[in-house]
Design a protein around this nucleic acid. Structure first.
Lengths: 361, 361
DNA sequence: CTGTTAGCGCGTTCAG
DNA sequence: CTGAACGCGCTAACAG
C-alpha cells in the first residue's frame, strides 16, 4: 500500500539502513549514495511512518496540552503561542512537535482520562494549563500520573497552575505560574483608592486555585485598608462575594444576586473579563451606568476587553508569553528556572470602567 | 523500563495474545482468564503503547485540525467543538481520538508542511478549517496531498472552506461550507434598506476565498439595488473597498483610509467582528458616533460582539455546530451528505451598531 | 477458548 | 562508508 523504507531502498539500490541514515542525517553517507537515495525518495513520494519510527527510536512527536476549553480566549491564547513555539515553525534542532489539544472542561476525570491517553501515545511532553481543582484526592491522582510521565521521560509543564510536588523525585515538573494574587490585590487597591467601600466580588468556582488566589489578593487589599473580617465594612465585603462559573452568564446572574444583597454596591470585581462582560450587561439591564453608578473590573485583559463598553479596567496576564515559555520548557529548549518555578508578573490596566463612586444617597 | 504486554502476560500466566484480546475485547476470552489478566493490568499499572498498537493494527488515534490561529475565537470555537466531538468525551464505539491542532497562520507553506507531518503520523483524519488561499498552484498542491491522504484511508473534511475536487476519485473529501455569500448579501441589504448609499467595505486579504465570497454577497446586494458597476453610486462603492487582514489593527487602519477616501461614508461593513472592533475604535477616535454618524457591521457573531460598544450588528455563523459536524464526519459517525457538501446557513443579527443614516449635509 | 508465529516499518547495533 | 540482523510492543492469522 503505502511506500516504505524498503521500497525506497530497492529503488535506490541500497539497503534500508542506508536510507534511514540519509533521512535522519545522523550518520556519514557518501554524497554519491545520498543523492541517489534522495532522488528515490522524491520519485516515490516517500513519507516516513512516524509510528514505526517512534516505536523503534522510542521517541514521540506529540506534546499534549490540557486546557479547560480552547474556545475560551484565555486558553486559546496560551495554546496558540505554545503550538507556535513547539510546531514546525520553530523548527529547532529537535524538529517540531505536534500539539494535541485536550478540552477537559475543568473536569478532574477528563483530566485524568486525557493524561492516560497521552501516556498511551508516549507523548514527548505534557502541559497542563489553567487553575487546578483543589481536591486532595484529585491532586494526588494527578501528581501520581505526572510522576509516572516524568519518570518515563515525558517533560511535564504546568502553566497557570500552582506548582505540584511529586512523590519521589521523578523528573521535576516545571511550573509557569501567574501572579494572580498580586494582580487581584492591586486591582482592589485601585478601587479602594478611588474611594469605593462597598465592593462586590463575582468570583469563580469555589474549588479552583485561580479563584482562591484572586480572592486572597482581593481580601488582602481590603484588610490592608482596615476592612478585614470583624470590621463592619469587612464583613459586608465578605457578604458581597458570589461564586459562579468563568462564563458570561455567571457574571450576569451573580450581579443580579449581588444587587439583591446590597443595592448600594459601587464597584464589582469580576472573576475574569468574560464574567465582567456579563456583569456589565446585567448592570445595564438594571439601569445602572458604568462607571457612573457602579465601577466594574475584569481580569486577564483578553483582547476584547479594550473594546468593551466601557473599556474594561482589568489585570493583564501576558498569556502568549506564558504559552511560549511553557512551549520552550516542554521542548527542553529553555532551562527550567531554579526550583522549577517561574512566576509571570501581572499588570493593572486602568481603563474606563472604573471611576470614583458617585455621591448618591 | 515501561511495563509491556509481555510483562502483564507473564504476571497473569497467559500469552500476550490473550492479554491483547482482553484489552481490546474483540475476542472471546474465558471470564476466569479475563479477570486474572485485568488484575495483572491493574497491579502493574499497565498502559498500552499506542504507537506499537497503531503500527501493528495500521490505525491511528490522531485527527489533525488545521486552523489559522486557535487564539482567534472563530477558529477556537470550531476547534473546541470538534475536539469535544472526537475526544474521549464522545467515547463512541470507535473510541475517542486526539485532536492535533496546527496553526498555519494562513500560510500555504505551513499548511502543506502540517499536512505532511500529519501524513507521517498516519492520522485517522484531517480537518482543514477557514478560507483557502486562492492560488492555483497551492490549491493543486493541497489537492494532491489530500488525495493521497484520502487514498490511504484518512478521512478528510473541509470546514468553512470551498469544496475541492480531487484528481482521481480518491476517497471523497466532504465539505462543511458556510453561506458567506448569502450572509453578506443580507447584511448589505439591511444597510441599504436603512437608507445607506455610501457604504464602505473593510474586507479581508484579497486572495482568500472567504473574502471573495463575502465581497460577492456585498456586491450582489448593491447591484440588486441598482448600484452595480457603471452606475455612479456603484463605482463609488467599489472605490470604498479596502483590503486588510482579519485583525483589529487592520480594521482600524482601513477605516482611516476609508475616511480619507470619502469622509461622507455613512456605513461600514467589516471583514469580520474582530475587524469591526478596529473599525469602531477608529471611528470613535475620529469623533464619529456609532451608529449616529456611521453604522458598523461585523461578521461571524463571535461571543464578544454582543458586548461591544455598541452591540454589533453582524452575521451569525453557527461555528460550534459546524465544528461538531466536521468532527462527526471525520470520525465517520455521520454519513456525508449527497455530493459531499453541506452548507451551513448564516443568520443576520441586527443589533445597535446599525441605524438609518443621519441627514447631515 | 488459548498459545504460537509472523510481521507492522523503522532505528540501530555489529560486522565488513 | 555500507549491509545484514535484530528488536521496539503490539495485533492478527493460524493452529490447537
Amino acid at each position: 500500500m503505502a511506500v516504505t523504507l524498503a521500497d525506497v531502498a530497492a529503488r535506490a539500490g541500497v539497503s534500508s539502513a542506508t536510507v534511514s541514515r540519509v533521512l535522519n542525517g545522523n550518520y556519514p553517507v557518501a554524497g554519491n549514495t545520498r543523492e541517489r537515495v534522495k532522488r528515490a525518495v522524491e520519485e516515490l513520494d516517500y513519507v516516513v511512518n512516524g509510528q514505526a519510527r517512534a516505536l523503534a527510536a522510542a521517541t514521540s512527536d506529540l506534546v499534549g496540552v490540557l486546557v479547560n476549553d480552547v474556545a475560551d480566549p484565555f486558553f486559546g491564547l496560551i495554546a496558540s503561542a505554545l503550538q507556535a513555539e513547539i510546531g514546525a515553525g520553530g523548527a529547532g534542532p529537535v524538529g517540531g512537535k505536534l500539539a494535541v489539544v485536550c478540552n477537559t472542561g475543568g473536569s478532574p476525570e477528563a483530566e485524568l482520562t486525557y493524561l492516560t491517553l497521552l501516556e498511551r501515545q508516549r507523548a514527548a511532553g505534557v502541559v497542563l494549563t489553567g487553575g487546578a481543582v483543589e481536591d486532595d484526592t484529585h491532586t494526588a491522582a494527578v501528581a501520581a500520573r505526572l510522576a509516572r510521565l516524568a519518570t518515563s521521560g515525558t517533560h511535564v509543564v504546568l502553566c497557570g497552575r500552582p506548582p505540584l510536588t511529586l512523590p519521589d523525585d521523578s523528573g521535576q515538573v516545571t511550573t509557569v505560574a501567574f501572579d494572580n494574587r498580586g494582580g487581584a490585590r492591586r486591582l482592589t487597591e485601585h478601587l479602594l483608592s478611588l474611594g469605593h467601600r462597598r465592593i462586590g466580588c463575582v468570583t469563580g468556582p469555589v474549588e479552583r486555585s485561580t479563584t482562591r488566589h484572586r480572592l486572597e489578593g482581593h481580601r488582602a487589599a481590603l484588610e490592608a485598608h482596615g476592612m478585614g473580617p470583624g470590621t463592619g465594612e469587612g464583613d459586608n465585603a465578605l457578604r458581597l462575594t458570589v461564586h459562579g462559573g468563568y462564563d458570561r452568564a455567571s457574571g450576569y446572574d451573580a450581579t443580579l444576586e449581588l444587587l439583591r444583597r446590597d443595592p448600594g454596591v459601587t464597584a464589582i470585581v469580576a472573576a475574569n473579563d468574560t464574567v465582567a462582560l456579563g456583569v456589565c450587561a446585567a448592570l445595564r439591564d438594571q439601569g445602572r451606568s458604568i462607571p457612573g453608578d457602579v465601577s466594574v473590573a475584569g481580569f486577564d485583559d483578553l483582547p476584547f476587553s479594550v473594546d468593551a463598553a466601557p473599556a474594561l479596567t482589568t489585570v493583564r496576564i501576558p498569556l502568549q508569553e506564558a504559552g511560549a515559555r511553557a512551549g520552550r520548557l516542554v521542548m527542553g529548549r529553555q532551562a527550567p528556572p531554579p526550583g522549577g518555578l517561574s512566576t509571570i508578573p501581572t499588570e493593572l490596566m486602568v481603563r474606563a470602567s472604573t471611576a470614583p463612586p458617585s455621591n448618591r444617597p
